[in-house]
Write a protein that binds this DNA or RNA. Structure first.
Length: 808
DNA sequence: GCTTTCGAGCTTTTT
DNA sequence: GCTCGAAAGC
């Protein structure tokens, strides 16, 4: 493929001035961060210090002053959501001038580049993107082929190691150079890595890490290609710089390099307009770089993020300017005091203190539950109270360390009829039936991908079992062709007539639909819209029909999910009239947890602490602040683990604007059994006078006691254990137990759909005891009772499933 | 080749 | 307490 410059543009006429409105309301440091002009700028932006505002105004300034065309700006954010927000905010300031900027994540920017350039190195533009599940499936096959479990390899250990290597820009060859060949496990790993890499390239696929790594490779191997992007992007801005890994760091380095005079000659000879950009010696100077970050918020070391990228920025980019933003515009002073106190325990950091002039605000509220459910009930009650006080559900968020913690929260929220959304976690696109439907689309888009093909070969059931699949694969191997070709030529395999017919029919459905997606060269036909493609595939394979006909009750729900996917494709087509199947697949592959956080108002948001980064809420609940959860047990062994966990806690605290709740439980369910939980060490790091303990670990621990025990008085495990044993020894359901653990919740659920309730009724609840109904709202399945309990306080109950009965 | 059953292992965080 | 894979029976 020859290099074709695709944008002809004159130099912008710099008038060097921009609207004063851009600087309005900024403090001196923020103002300087917007106005500074130089080769490289590091903005160290504490949590809530207005960095998004600074970044967007900086971009708007570049555009308004005509220092840059939109097409010369590349802004990189961490999530698509953040990218969309930044685009929107720039658009608000400069209007349509914002068109043509690249504001995207590292991954989507790289996909865009790779789709354009993949043909330089043996891929086609229709490559597929393997998500982690796809990579794992592939690795599973490879490990099995090699019997690698003999050497202690698991899918997760192998995928972790490969990912780590790729983040450090290592490939099979470079790894082999440093490998110890007398270690059989290392030899085995090398073989796994080799086969994995080979399988990806045969499948015309990249995994997540490749998207970055291969782009760097592309730039290094093809200087003229790199020169095209270096020439194009004159201003590069990177958000959340503390979370970049080595590959991403290298990508930034590659993009901001200057173009050597001889390469510039080559670009010019190929028709690239570079003359106006060349300096005295004929080189094209490197682009200007602005990075924004906060090393206190670095929480992705496990993914290869290297805090040194930000710490050593000044060394890497000589003559760079550093600007510190310390004034916080988000949180109350109490919240900031807690955050500052916690983070100051990380000793190897530059001292930095957030301050605000918002005022003290509410105290932080602490609560210790008996169990995770008890904790969840406390949260539900507090949310109800705040909602009554006029705080919208959408301004409230609940954070947790692990996704497993959602279960208890969801159960209680459903019972309390609280509207909520879980961000991340088991996502729509991870459901098996959705992955199946998606695999049909991938098989059509990228016929080289055997993973997708294998997944759907027998879905719905068409009698192509493992034996038949192996036969097809062997035929493909013997003829040195793809699995897809074997499907087309199934007639030559000598299989039974029935199964042969099925395979051929399957293959021709794919081929015929493919012809509609990629109309032959010179034909008038436009590529078929994604929704049509999907519907045709589903109909011709009787995919939904089979699910609907199934006796399994869950299959009905699966059919509905697939219909939902059809709706998603229609929506996509509406928003992107020219969107291709590849665009759709790319978008789906790169959606992040924080991305589906749309303005769907009126629901409480539940998410992990990692997902919470970059977001802010009026009220925040930090849950499960316990040893082994935060800090997580798994982090203990890793160097820097506890410090990173502390940063995670810090990130959580600093998301809150006005109200912060910190909660924990004395027991926590894991793997289906119940374990004793201890308060997190980080709790002691918050000055005691900042927290108003509704029920402190000390109170919850002492039998009847209302004396809060000082948190920093070390409790050993045995005292917790013994107190628990006493608690557990009490038969469940005794009145005494109830009053002591007013919020204790059991798992009793019943079908109450026939129960008629109205205001004034007196009821008895399994866990909360007796109370009076104050209001009934909603219809049918969603009827909700507001109940004032005698001892347990006010609760909202979803009547249908509440363990209650009327008492006369 | 399909379906059912039973046991093992599992949970850190994500683009 | 759930998911996945192996094994056995149909």
């Amino acid at each position: 493929m020859s290099f074709v410059p695709n944008i002809i543009e004159p130099e912008p006429a710099v008038d060097g001035s921009f609207d004063d409105a851009l600087l309005r309301g900024l403090n001196p440091q923020q103002r300087e961060a917007v106005e500074y002009r130089g080769q490289s700028l590091l903005i160290v932006a504490g949590a809530g210090s207005g960095k998004t505002s600074v970044l967007t105004r900086r971009i708007a300034g570049l555009l308004q002053s005509r220092e840059a065309f939109p097409s010369q700006i590349l802004a990189i954010t961490f999530t698509n959501k953040a990218a969309a927000e930044m685009r929107e905010r720039v658009h608000q300031i400069v209007g349509n001038e914002a068109e043509g900027m690249w504001i995207s994540t590292f991954h989507s920017a790289c996909v865009r580049i790779l789709r354009r350039e993949a043909e330089h190195f043996g891929f086609t533009k229709s490559f597929t993107i393997y998500d982690s599940a796809d990579s794992r499936a592939l690795l599973k096959r490879i490990l099995k082929e090699l019997d690698a479990d003999q050497y202690g390899f698991t899918v997760s250990s192998a995928s972790g190691k490969i990912s780590k290597l790729k983040n450090e820009l290592q490939d099979v060859e470079s790894y082999a150079r440093g490998a110890n060949f007398s270690d059989p496990a290392e030899v085995m790993f090398l073989e796994i890595f080799r086969r994995y890499t080979q399988a990806l390239s045969q499948a015309n696929a990249f995994d997540f890490d490749d998207l970055i790594g291969q782009t760097v490779y592309l730039f290094r191997a093809f200087p003229v290609v790199a020169a095209h992007y270096r020439r194009r992007f004159r201003h590069i801005l990177v958000d959340e710089y503390q979370d970049t890994n080595h590959a991403q760091y290298s990508l930034i380095h590659e993009l901001t390099r200057s173009v050597r005079p001889d390469i510039a000659d080559e670009v010019e000879a190929a028709g690239g307009l570079v003359k106006t950009k060349r300096d005295a010696v004929g080189a094209i100077p490197g682009a200007s770089l602005t990075v924004v970050g906060d090393s206190d918020q670095s929480i992705y070391a496990f993914r290869g993020a290297d805090i040194r990228n930000i710490v050593e920025f000044e060394r890497d980019f000589p003559n760079s300017k550093v600007i510190l933003l310390e004034q916080n515009y988000r949180s109350t002073q109490n919240i900031l005091d807690a955050a500052n106190a916690v983070i100051s325990n990380n000793f190897d950091r530059k001292d930095k203190k957030l301050f605000t002039d918002i005022g003290e605000g509410h105290k932080i509220v602490g609560f210790t539950g008996y169990s995770g459910h008890d904790e969840a009930q406390f949260i539900a009650d507090e949310i109800t109270k705040m909602h009554d006080e006029g705080i919208a559900y959408k301004d409230i968020a609940v954070f947790y360390r692990t996704n497993a913690q959602t279960r208890a929260l969801e159960e209680i929220f459903i019972r309390s009829a609280l509207p909520y959304r879980v961000l991340g976690g088991t996502k729509f696109y991870e459901r098996a039936e959705i992955k199946d439907a998606m695999a049909y689309l991938i098989a059509v888009a990228n016929p080289a991908d055997p993973l997708a093909l294998r997944r759907i070969m027998n879905v719905p059931k068409r009698g192509i079992g493992p034996a038949t699949e192996t036969a097809l694969q062997s035929w493909a191997d013997a003829h040195e062709t793809s699995l897809r070709d074997a499907v087309r030529n199934a007639g030559e395999l000598g299989l039974g007539p029935k199964v042969t017919g099925e395979i051929l029919e399957f293959g021709s459905v794919l081929d015929e639909v493919m012809a509609k997606v990629y109309p032959p060269e010179g034909s008038e036909a436009r590529p078929a819209p994604v929704a049509d493609v999907l519907v045709e595939l589903l109909e011709r394979t009787k995919f939904v029909e089979t699910l609907r006909a199934s006796r399994d009750a869950q299959d009905e729900a699966r059919a509905e999910n697939v219909e939902e996917l059809v709706a998603v494709t229609k929506e996509f087509q509406k928003n992107n009239p020219d969107g291709t199947l590849l665009d759709f697949l790319t978008e789906v592959s790169l959606v992040a947890a924080a991305d589906d956080l749309d303005d769907l108002s009126g629901t409480v948001s539940l998410m992990t602490l990692h997902t919470a980064k970059g977001l802010e809420y009026e009220a925040v609940f930090l849950t499960g602040v316990e040893e082994d959860l935060l800090p997580h047990r798994m982090s203990a062994g890793e160097p820097g683990g506890p410090a990173e966990e502390r940063r995670l806690f810090y990130v959580g605290i600093t998301r809150a604007r006005k109200r912060l709740f910190i909660s924990l439980a004395m027991t926590r369910a894991a793997y289906g059994n119940v374990n004793v939980a201890m308060p997190s060490r980080y709790l002691q790091e918050i000055p005691a006078d900042l927290i108003d303990w509704r029920q402190s670990p000390g109170m919850a621990n002492s039998r009847n006691g209302t004396e809060p025990r000082a948190l920093n008085a070390r409790r050993d495990g045995s005292s917790w254990g013994s107190s628990l044993r006493e608690a557990a020894a009490l038969p469940p359901g005794k009145p005494k137990e109830k009053t002591q653990w007013a919020n204790m919740v059991t798992n009793v659920v019943r079908d109450n759909s026939t129960l008629e309730l109205s205001a004034g009724d007196r009821i008895k609840h399994n866990d909360f005891g007796e109370g009076r109904v104050t209001a009934v709202t909603g219809e049918g399945k969603k009827r909700v009772a507001e109940v004032q309990f005698d001892t347990a306080g006010r609760k909202r109950l979803l009547i249908q499933i509440a363990p209650i009965e009327k008492v006369e």
